[in-house]
């Protein structure tokens, strides 16, 4: 990606899944390429198992850290229901990279609306032209860790070409932002999907 292109990315999931670190890795990778970055994220009460999102704007002429509806080029979802929750932000023809493993909230088991996984995946498949499904359970088993779903998803997004950043850019960002003992695992995660 060159400095005069721009990309709007939304990362979404459930508090505690690692969306904030993922947005930091994207920002670090973009800044190494001289691309200005703005982000806005959910911190605080919603982190306790609530829905969380980060808006990441790369190379934008705009000044707002938040983007409007139907302007996201890419949604990286750590959880399928959260992908649907953010779908209104997706630009027509935009791409969604999502984990297909549901995180069922307590509310769905204690009288709140139930979790309709089939309906949720069905809606994503019919509504999104450019959908990349990532098997989180499979990646966890193959990589031997549940802690790197964020990097698995980033790798998938980079490979689809919608992130505007290369795998190599992200590898550099991992070296910049993470302690060395985590490099090997995360580099494998980057190449997984």
């Amino acid at each position: 990606m060159s400095a005069n292109e721009n990309t709007n990315v939304i990362l979404c999931g459930v508090g505690g899944q690692g969306t904030i670190l993922a947005s930091k890795l994207i920002a670090a990778a973009a800044m190494s390429n001289g691309i200005p970055v703005k982000t806005a994220e959910t911190i605080g009460m919603a982190q306790r198992g609530g829905s969380v999102f980060s808006h990441v704007r790369l190379g934008q002429p705009e000044v707002s850290p938040l983007m409007g509806r139907a302007t996201a080029d890419l949604i990286i979802a750590f959880e399928p229901a959260e992908a649907v929750r953010q779908l209104a932000y997706l630009r027509p023809g935009g791409c969604v990279v999502t984990s297909t493993r549901p995180v069922v909230p307590v509310s769905a088991m204690t009288g709140g609306p139930t979790y309709d996984l089939e309906g949720i995946l069905g809606l994503l498949r019919t509504r999104v032209d450019n959908l990349v499904e990532v098997d989180a359970a499979g990646s966890e088993e193959d990589l031997g860790s549940a802690k790197c779903l964020n990097v698995v998803l980033l790798g998938a997004a980079a490979r689809v070409g919608k992130l505007g950043l290369s795998i190599e850019d992200l590898r550099e960002a991992i070296h910049q932002r993470l302690p060395q003992k985590l490099w090997e695992l995360n580099e494998r995660a980057l190449g997984y999907a």
């Binding site: 229901a81 997706l90 769905a108 069905g122």
Partner: peptide, 19 residues
């Protein structure tokens, strides 16, 4: 011109909870 129809699937509620 930019607005899209809302998703037509029931989504679970995800209020913050005790860990």
């Amino acid at each position: 011109t930019e607005s899209q129809e809302e998703p037509s699937v029931q989504l679970p509620l995800r209020p913050p909870v005790l860990c």
